[in-house]
Protein backbone atom coordinates (compact mmCIF):
# COMPACT_ATOMS: atom_id res chain seq x y z
CA UNK A 1 0.00 0.00 0.00
CA UNK A 2 1.07 3.55 -0.65
CA UNK A 3 2.39 5.12 2.57
CA UNK A 4 1.82 8.60 3.91
CA UNK A 5 4.23 8.12 6.79
CA UNK A 6 7.22 5.86 6.90
CA UNK A 7 9.44 5.73 9.94
CA UNK A 8 12.63 3.74 9.65
CA UNK A 9 14.94 2.65 12.39
CA UNK A 10 13.90 5.50 14.70
CA UNK A 11 16.02 5.86 17.83
CA UNK A 12 15.85 8.45 20.58
CA UNK A 13 18.10 8.87 23.59
CA UNK A 14 17.51 11.14 26.56
CA UNK A 15 20.91 11.27 28.17
CA UNK A 16 21.56 7.64 28.96
CA UNK A 17 17.95 6.61 28.62
CA UNK A 18 17.03 4.78 25.43
CA UNK A 19 13.44 5.89 24.90
CA UNK A 20 13.10 4.51 21.39
CA UNK A 21 15.17 1.78 19.79
CA UNK A 22 15.08 1.21 16.03
CA UNK A 23 11.34 1.46 15.60
CA UNK A 24 9.88 0.98 12.11
CA UNK A 25 6.37 2.00 11.30
CA UNK A 26 4.40 2.86 8.22
CA UNK A 27 0.93 4.31 7.83
CA UNK A 28 -0.83 3.85 4.51
CA UNK A 29 -3.17 6.28 2.82
CA UNK A 30 -6.53 6.30 4.50
CA UNK A 31 -5.41 3.76 7.08
CA UNK A 32 -5.99 3.75 10.83
CA UNK A 33 -3.03 2.47 12.77
CA UNK A 34 -2.88 2.19 16.54
CA UNK A 35 0.27 2.43 18.59
CA UNK A 36 -0.12 0.62 21.87
CA UNK A 37 2.09 -0.40 24.71
CA UNK A 38 2.43 -0.08 28.46
CA UNK A 39 2.95 3.33 30.07
CA UNK A 40 6.43 4.65 29.47
CA UNK A 41 6.94 2.42 26.45
CA UNK A 42 7.88 5.42 24.31
CA UNK A 43 4.64 6.03 22.44
CA UNK A 44 4.38 9.75 23.09
CA UNK A 45 8.12 10.11 22.46
CA UNK A 46 7.47 8.54 19.10
CA UNK A 47 4.82 11.17 18.38
CA UNK A 48 7.10 13.94 19.56
CA UNK A 49 9.86 12.77 17.22
CA UNK A 50 7.55 12.48 14.26
CA UNK A 51 6.01 15.92 14.82
CA UNK A 52 9.37 17.61 15.26
CA UNK A 53 9.21 18.44 18.96
CA UNK A 54 12.31 16.31 19.61
CA UNK A 55 14.88 15.75 16.91
CA UNK A 56 15.41 11.96 16.83
CA UNK A 57 18.85 10.61 17.68
CA UNK A 58 18.85 8.29 14.68
CA UNK A 59 16.65 6.96 11.92
CA UNK A 60 14.52 8.53 9.24
CA UNK A 61 11.04 9.97 9.21
CA UNK A 62 9.53 10.21 5.75
CA UNK A 63 6.17 11.69 4.87
CA UNK A 64 4.25 11.92 1.65
CA UNK A 65 4.55 15.06 -0.39
CA UNK A 66 1.15 16.56 -0.98
CA UNK A 67 -0.16 15.77 -4.44
CA UNK A 68 2.75 13.53 -5.34
CA UNK A 69 3.48 9.89 -4.79
CA UNK A 70 6.97 10.15 -3.32
CA UNK A 71 8.10 10.47 0.28
CA UNK A 72 10.32 13.14 1.77
CA UNK A 73 12.55 13.07 4.85
CA UNK A 74 11.41 15.47 7.57
CA UNK A 75 13.98 14.84 10.29
CA UNK A 76 14.93 18.04 12.11
CA UNK A 77 12.09 20.13 10.78
CA UNK A 78 10.44 22.38 13.33
CA UNK A 79 6.97 21.35 14.53
CA UNK A 80 5.28 24.14 12.61
CA UNK A 81 6.97 23.08 9.36
CA UNK A 82 5.87 19.49 9.92
CA UNK A 83 2.31 20.67 10.39
CA UNK A 84 2.51 22.74 7.22
CA UNK A 85 3.57 19.62 5.34
CA UNK A 86 0.40 17.83 6.36
CA UNK A 87 0.81 16.17 9.74
CA UNK A 88 -1.33 17.33 12.64
CA UNK A 89 -1.59 16.08 16.17
CA UNK A 90 -3.46 16.24 19.45
CA UNK A 91 -2.00 15.99 22.92
CA UNK A 92 -2.34 13.47 25.68
CA UNK A 93 -2.97 16.16 28.29
CA UNK A 94 -5.30 18.48 26.39
CA UNK A 95 -3.47 21.58 25.19
CA UNK A 96 -6.11 23.98 23.95
CA UNK A 97 -5.80 27.74 24.09
CA UNK A 98 -7.99 28.15 27.17
CA UNK A 99 -8.74 31.87 26.93
CA UNK A 100 -9.60 31.86 23.27
CA UNK A 101 -13.03 31.00 21.98
CA UNK A 102 -13.75 27.64 20.42
CA UNK A 103 -13.90 29.20 16.98
CA UNK A 104 -10.61 31.01 17.50
CA UNK A 105 -8.98 27.78 18.56
CA UNK A 106 -9.93 26.24 15.24
CA UNK A 107 -8.91 29.36 13.36
CA UNK A 108 -5.42 29.00 14.82
CA UNK A 109 -5.35 25.71 12.98
CA UNK A 110 -6.07 27.64 9.76
CA UNK A 111 -3.11 29.92 10.44
CA UNK A 112 -0.63 28.03 8.30
CA UNK A 113 -3.06 27.97 5.39
CA UNK A 114 -3.51 31.74 5.48
CA UNK A 115 -1.21 34.42 4.14
CA UNK A 116 -2.12 37.82 5.61
CA UNK A 117 0.93 39.69 6.89
CA UNK A 118 1.31 42.77 9.05
CA UNK A 119 0.39 45.18 6.30
CA UNK A 120 -2.54 43.07 5.27
CA UNK A 121 -3.79 42.99 8.83
CA UNK A 122 -3.53 46.75 9.27
CA UNK A 123 -4.84 47.86 5.87
CA UNK A 124 -7.39 45.06 5.70
CA UNK A 125 -7.58 44.95 1.94
CA UNK A 126 -10.01 42.84 -0.04
CA UNK A 127 -7.91 39.71 -0.08
CA UNK A 128 -7.34 39.80 3.66
CA UNK A 129 -11.03 40.28 4.37
CA UNK A 130 -11.96 37.42 2.04
CA UNK A 131 -9.32 35.20 3.60
CA UNK A 132 -10.61 35.95 7.09
CA UNK A 133 -14.19 35.31 6.11
CA UNK A 134 -13.42 32.02 4.47
CA UNK A 135 -11.32 30.99 7.48
CA UNK A 136 -14.28 31.73 9.74
CA UNK A 137 -16.64 29.76 7.52
CA UNK A 138 -14.33 26.79 7.13
CA UNK A 139 -13.62 26.69 10.85
CA UNK A 140 -17.30 26.80 11.59
CA UNK A 141 -17.92 24.01 9.14
CA UNK A 142 -15.39 21.84 10.95
CA UNK A 143 -17.01 22.65 14.28
CA UNK A 144 -20.38 21.60 12.92
CA UNK A 145 -18.96 18.31 11.74
CA UNK A 146 -17.50 17.69 15.17
CA UNK A 147 -20.71 18.59 16.92
CA UNK A 148 -19.17 21.64 18.53
CA UNK A 149 -21.24 24.34 16.83
CA UNK A 150 -23.25 25.21 19.95
CA UNK A 151 -20.04 26.16 21.75
CA UNK A 152 -18.65 28.35 19.01
CA UNK A 153 -18.23 31.52 21.10
CA UNK A 154 -17.39 29.88 24.42
CA UNK A 155 -13.98 29.97 25.96
CA UNK A 156 -12.24 26.67 25.32
CA UNK A 157 -11.57 26.25 29.03
CA UNK A 158 -15.29 26.25 29.79
CA UNK A 159 -16.06 23.28 27.56
CA UNK A 160 -17.01 19.89 28.99
CA UNK A 161 -14.14 17.44 28.96
CA UNK A 162 -15.28 15.33 26.04
CA UNK A 163 -15.93 18.44 23.96
CA UNK A 164 -12.42 19.67 24.71
CA UNK A 165 -11.02 16.45 23.31
CA UNK A 166 -13.12 16.83 20.19
CA UNK A 167 -12.07 20.46 19.86
CA UNK A 168 -8.44 19.35 19.82
CA UNK A 169 -9.23 17.07 16.90
CA UNK A 170 -11.17 19.86 15.17
CA UNK A 171 -8.25 22.23 15.60
CA UNK A 172 -5.85 19.68 14.17
CA UNK A 173 -8.12 19.05 11.22
CA UNK A 174 -8.21 22.75 10.42
CA UNK A 175 -4.57 22.51 9.41
CA UNK A 176 -5.66 20.30 6.47
CA UNK A 177 -3.57 17.28 7.33
CA UNK A 178 -3.36 14.02 5.41
CA UNK A 179 -2.27 12.27 8.58
CA UNK A 180 -3.69 12.89 12.02
CA UNK A 181 -1.82 11.80 15.14
CA UNK A 182 -4.11 11.34 18.13
CA UNK A 183 -2.50 10.92 21.53
CA UNK A 184 -4.93 9.02 23.78
CA UNK A 185 -8.08 10.63 22.40
CA UNK A 186 -10.37 8.56 24.62
CA UNK A 187 -8.50 9.15 27.88
CA UNK A 188 -10.93 10.05 30.63
CA UNK A 189 -14.03 9.43 28.51
CA UNK A 190 -16.98 7.32 29.56
CA UNK A 191 -18.09 4.38 27.36
CA UNK A 192 -20.77 6.46 25.67
CA UNK A 193 -18.34 9.25 24.78
CA UNK A 194 -15.83 6.68 23.59
CA UNK A 195 -18.40 5.20 21.25
CA UNK A 196 -19.09 8.66 19.84
CA UNK A 197 -15.37 9.17 19.38
CA UNK A 198 -15.15 5.87 17.55
CA UNK A 199 -17.79 7.01 15.06
CA UNK A 200 -16.16 10.40 14.75
CA UNK A 201 -12.75 8.97 13.89
CA UNK A 202 -14.32 6.62 11.36
CA UNK A 203 -16.08 9.57 9.77
CA UNK A 204 -12.90 11.61 9.63
CA UNK A 205 -11.22 8.76 7.81
CA UNK A 206 -13.99 8.11 5.34
CA UNK A 207 -15.26 11.60 4.64
CA UNK A 208 -12.03 13.53 4.77
CA UNK A 209 -9.72 10.80 3.57
CA UNK A 210 -7.32 11.41 6.44
CA UNK A 211 -5.07 8.63 7.67
CA UNK A 212 -4.89 8.24 11.45
CA UNK A 213 -2.20 7.10 13.81
CA UNK A 214 -3.39 6.88 17.38
CA UNK A 215 -2.04 6.06 20.78
CA UNK A 216 -4.73 4.55 22.95
CA UNK A 217 -5.17 2.45 26.04
CA UNK A 218 -8.84 1.65 25.54
CA UNK A 219 -8.53 -1.77 23.91
CA UNK A 220 -12.12 -1.91 22.79
CA UNK A 221 -11.69 1.28 20.84
CA UNK A 222 -8.34 0.19 19.44
CA UNK A 223 -9.67 -3.18 18.29
CA UNK A 224 -12.75 -1.71 16.65
CA UNK A 225 -11.01 1.17 14.90
CA UNK A 226 -7.63 -0.03 13.76
CA UNK A 227 -6.66 -1.61 10.50
CA UNK A 228 -3.30 -2.42 11.99
CA UNK A 229 -1.80 -2.30 15.44
CA UNK A 230 1.79 -1.75 16.40
CA UNK A 231 2.92 -2.71 19.90
CA UNK A 232 5.91 -1.13 21.59
CA UNK A 233 7.52 -1.99 24.89
CA UNK A 234 10.66 -0.48 26.40
CA UNK A 235 11.15 1.59 23.28
CA UNK A 236 11.17 -1.39 20.91
CA UNK A 237 8.55 -2.62 18.56
CA UNK A 238 7.54 -6.08 19.70
CA UNK A 239 4.70 -6.87 17.36
CA UNK A 240 2.67 -5.57 14.49
CA UNK A 241 -0.41 -6.83 12.69
CA UNK A 242 -4.16 -6.80 12.39
CA UNK A 243 -6.21 -6.65 15.57
CA UNK A 244 -6.79 -10.39 15.39
CA UNK A 245 -3.12 -11.15 15.01
CA UNK A 246 -2.24 -8.90 17.93
CA UNK A 247 -4.95 -10.41 20.09
CA UNK A 248 -3.33 -13.79 19.67
CA UNK A 249 0.31 -12.79 19.76
CA UNK A 250 1.92 -14.41 22.82
CA UNK A 251 4.63 -11.75 23.14
CA UNK A 252 2.03 -9.02 23.27
CA UNK A 253 -0.12 -10.84 25.74
CA UNK A 254 2.89 -11.30 27.92
CA UNK A 255 4.12 -7.75 27.70
CA UNK A 256 0.96 -5.83 27.83
CA UNK A 257 -2.40 -7.26 27.00
CA UNK A 258 -2.27 -10.14 29.42
CA UNK A 259 -4.04 -8.67 32.39
CA UNK A 260 -6.49 -6.65 30.34
CA UNK A 261 -7.57 -9.54 28.16
CA UNK A 262 -8.03 -11.83 31.13
CA UNK A 263 -10.22 -9.34 32.86
Amino acid sequence: MESVLKVQNLGMNFGGLRALDSVDLAVGRNEIVALIGPNGAGKTTFFNCVTGIYPPTEGDILIAVRGKGDLKRINGLKPNRVTEKGLARTFQNIRLFPHMTVLENVMIGRHCRMAAGILGAVLRGGSTVREEQSAVQESYAILEKMGLAPFVNDFAKNLPYGAQRRLEIARAMATEPFLLLLDEPAAGMNPYETKELDDLIQRVRHEEGIAILLIEHDMKLVMSLSDRICVVDYGRKIAQGTPDEIRNNPAVIKAYLGEEMDA
Binding site: I53, A88, R95, M100, G109, A116, A121
Partner: peptide
Protein backbone atom coordinates in the same frame (compact mmCIF):
# COMPACT_ATOMS: atom_id res chain seq x y z
CA UNK B 1 -6.62 45.67 13.61
CA UNK B 2 -3.58 43.60 14.46
CA UNK B 3 -5.29 42.09 17.46
CA UNK B 4 -8.16 40.92 15.34
CA UNK B 5 -6.10 39.37 12.58
CA UNK B 6 -4.21 36.22 11.77
CA UNK B 7 -1.13 37.67 13.46
CA UNK B 8 -2.96 38.81 16.57
CA UNK B 9 -4.53 35.39 17.03
CA UNK B 10 -1.12 33.80 16.70
CA UNK B 11 0.21 36.08 19.46
CA UNK B 12 -2.57 35.08 21.80
CA UNK B 13 -2.13 31.41 20.99
CA UNK B 14 1.57 31.78 21.73
CA UNK B 15 0.72 33.27 25.11
CA UNK B 16 -1.71 30.49 25.89
CA UNK B 17 0.40 27.48 24.95
CA UNK B 18 3.69 27.65 23.10
CA UNK B 19 3.93 23.97 22.27
CA UNK B 20 0.39 23.60 21.01
CA UNK B 21 0.87 26.79 19.06
CA UNK B 22 3.84 25.38 17.20
CA UNK B 23 2.10 22.09 16.66
CA UNK B 24 -0.70 23.99 14.95
CA UNK B 25 1.72 25.30 12.36
CA UNK B 26 2.62 28.68 13.82
CA UNK B 27 6.23 29.76 13.48
CA UNK B 28 7.15 30.59 17.07
Amino acid sequence: RLQDSRIGRAWIALREDEIACQAMGIDK
